[in-house]
Design a protein around this nucleic acid. Sequence first.
DNA 1: CCTTTGACCAACA
DNA 2: TTGTTGGCCAAAG
Length: 120
Amino acid sequence: MKNIDFYQRIAIVGAKIPPGKVTTYGQLALLCGQPNNSRQVGYALNRGKMGREFPAYKVVNGRGYLSGAASFAAPDLQRELLVADGIEVKDNKVSLKRYGWHHTLEEAERFYNLFLQMGI
DNA sequence: CCTTTGACCAACA
DNA sequence: TTGTTGGCCAAAG
């Protein structure tokens, strides 16, 4: 699997984050078939490799913390976008328990099969 | 070719 | 419960 494909996978999974939910770098990496490659997800976003469509604001770290002022065009942009989606942000952090995307095994398998079928 | 860097993470003290 | 540590791995230098 080429890395270009990994970015494609991230785009596909990112588009399926349920409304009003957030995901983590690690979860995206896992759903994209590379559980130990969460740093690469951060790299892709940092370098703007995911395009304008990608809901980067819905990606937080494993403890629910937002990505940092430097990561978005405006320092407070990520928080504003999350709040606009009805997601509570307190102390620069969201509750993963309440707003995390708790995907099922079936969902994970659907992605796996889709990627297989697409050959990416 | 190395070596360093990073929008990460789980385990540990 | 907070800070640290070692592992991770592709891209950049």
